[in-house]
């Protein structure tokens, strides 16, 4: 197999990689906010249960979670494993990343000085207005560097979908490497991930800069 065919084949797998990447962000970013709210709940029970779930999600390998969510239903309830593995893969990624995002949101929200809430209260803003107009924009600016970190990690983590044989770039690369007994696919994969993250860095850097108009 020529290098060009190899690259072309792996490039096809990029759609699978992108599907995991964008769908995970689409679901985990808002889900993380919901989890952060539960984590900061005034009810001790809710906040402790949430804290426990977050610690399980962060304390066990994502690979294990992927396998559990993809094959668990079969072992537990004898459901047939769906041929379209994108759904369980995205569920596993979204839940796992939501746990990380939740902790980032929480730290961001807790870092906003109480005076901002008090000023908003005195001026008569409702609780919802205070959150969306005053607090959240400041939180987003503060947590951007941490979010960028997670997004960069996510690009690389998509390769873990190979453990459940989901057809993304790394899975295809590994198949080629096996059939051709070549190390080349791994080099190609490395370059792809690096370029992908170069784009992510550029976009997130732009986003961070756009918020630099205030301190």
């Amino acid at each position: 197999m020529s290098l060009m065919t190899m690259i072309a084949k792996m490039f096809e797998g990029l759609s699978g990689t992108c599907a995991i990447f964008f769908l995970t962000l689409l679901f985990s970013l808002p889900l993380g906010m919901g989890v952060a709210m539960l984590r900061m709940s005034k009810s001790k029970i809710i906040s402790n249960i949430t804290r426990f779930i977050i610690s399980v999600l962060r304390g066990t390998p994502l690979m294990l979670q992927l396998i559990a969510i993809t094959y668990g239903p079969y072992y537990l309830f004898h459901f047939s494993v769906s041929r379209n593995k994108l759904i369980p893969v995205v569920i596993a990624f979204a839940i796992n990343y939501a746990a990380y995002f939740a902790e980032i949101y929480r730290s961001g929200i807790e870092s906003i000085p109480v005076g901002q809430y008090e000023a908003a209260e005195i001026l008569g803003y409702s609780k919802i207005q205070t959150f969306f107009r005053i607090i959240l924009p400041q939180v987003i600016k503060r947590i951007m560097p941490s979010i960028t970190n997670e997004v960069v990690t996510l690009v690389k983590d998509t390769s873990m979908a190979f453990t459940v044989s989901y057809q993304e770039m790394f899975t295809i690369g590994k198949q080629i490497a096996n059939s051709e007994t070549s190390f080349m696919p791994f080099v190609v994969a490395g370059v792809f991930y690096f370029l992908f993250n170069a784009i992510v860095d550029y976009v997130m850097g732009k986003a961070e800069k756009s918020m630099n108009y205030y301190q």
Binding site: G115, Q116, E118, A119, I134, P137, Q138, K141, Y214, Q215
Partner: peptide, 10 residues
């Protein structure tokens, strides 16, 4: 009016 202003920085 607060001691430390509490303007909205954004």
């Amino acid at each position: 009016v607060f001691q430390n202003f509490n303007l909205f920085p954004h």
